[in-house]
């Protein structure tokens, strides 16, 4: 048997619906026989009648409704059709869900699933990575699973967490990643994972960029460099300690993320490592993000708009020469 990242997300939701009667799924086209734009809820409406509900195209009200339901004992999962459209729910997510526990002492256990990141041909409005925006605001947990196993266990954990969770699932990984079977347990959220060990350079990354980084590490190995690759798994909380410990071994840090550069998760990692681990660094830490333009439609443009293995390798080599 082999299972994809997307199937893992579906299976996690099936398990959640089976095991916890407080769970319901709320989103555009998730119900009926359709099962979502990406089929992440395929078959679930039939298996769990009345608990996988189509909504109007009302991102603000979808999240507002989930907040009210969560406040009163439910564990809603909101599926955004694309992460990009969560921009019209920002108010409910940031100002309502994100402030509620602080203001009232009542936490809001919602999970908002964001089909994120680029696939070629998707253009400016179906390709965005929004983790950095959500991480900027207080009161939210932001998950960025990069593996089939994490896609599964972290979604289950997201729903169990009493606070709002933004679960960024990468669309490129949906079909490209496969695992033999689903895990029974995973690392807890907030713990980064060393995806590959090395002593010459640390690449700290998350989500789809993990796989670009692993490819780079493979390439650099043939050139005689050992790259340590860290899968952050969640950008909030950010496991700064694991990154610092790695930098203590390698002395060099490259952070890679797919969101826009200004104020991104990569900038935050560098700020922390520089402040806490300046003495560990043998060279100025570097970062790579998507370009500071809207995301292009054409594959020739798209493929160089976001960091890719070739560019990451170039940057890594320069850093190794420092």
């Amino acid at each position: 048997m082999s299972i994809t990242y997307l199937e893992a997300i579906r299976e996690a939701q099936a398990k959640l619906l089976r095991d916890d009667e407080r769970v319901f799924i709320y989103g555009q086209d998730v119900g009926g026989t359709f099962g979502g734009a990406f089929k992440a809820t395929k078959g679930l409406a039939k298996e769990f009648p009345g608990r996988v509900l189509n909504t109007p195209i009302s991102e603000d009200a979808m999240v507002g409704t989930a907040i009210g339901a969560a406040m009163h004992g439910m564990r809603p999962i909101v599926e955004m059709q694309f992460a990009d459209f969560s921009s019209t729910a920002l108010n409910q997510i940031l100002n309502n869900a994100g402030t509620h526990y602080w203001r009232t002492d009542v936490p809001i256990p919602i999970t908002v699933r964001l089909p994120s990141g680029g696939t070629k041909g998707s253009g400016p409005f179906h390709s965005q990575s929004m983790e950095s925006i959500y991480a900027h605001y207080p009161g939210l947990i932001v998950m960025t699973p990069a593996t089939v196993e994490d896609a599964y266990t972290m979604l289950i954990e997201a729903v169990a967490i009493d606070d709002p969770v933004i679960y960024c699932e990468h669309k490129y990984l949906y079909y490209h990643l496969k695992a033999e079977k689903l895990p029974t347990e995973g690392l807890p959220t907030g713990k980064a994972r060393i995806a590959r060990e090395g002593r010459d350079l640390t690449i700290a990354t998350y989500s789809a960029m993990l796989h670009e980084a692993l490819a780079v590490a493979e390439q650099l190995a043939t050139e005689g460099f050992e790259t340590e690759v860290i899968d952050l798994r969640s950008v909030k909380p950010l496991d700064t300690n694991t990154v610092l410990a790695s930098v203590a071994r390698t002395g060099r840090l490259l952070c890679v993320g797919e969101s826009f550069p200004w104020g991104s998760a990569t900038a935050e990692i560098i700020a922390r490592v520089t402040a806490e681990g300046f003495h560990l660094l043998d060279a100025a830490p570097q970062r790579m993000n998507a370009k500071d333009t809207p995301i292009p439609y054409h594959p020739n443009l798209w493929s160089v708009h976001r960091p890719n293995a070739k560019e990451i390798a170039r940057k890594a080599r320069a850093l190794l020469r420092e």
């Binding site: 339901a69 809603p76 100002n95 309502n96 402030t99």
Partner: peptide
Amino acid sequence: ISHLGAMVSVTVGALMAKRFR
């Protein structure tokens, strides 16, 4: 919250929770 209009859907959600339960 200050942002006007935001509490209507929250009320809807609270009512849905009661119905679910």
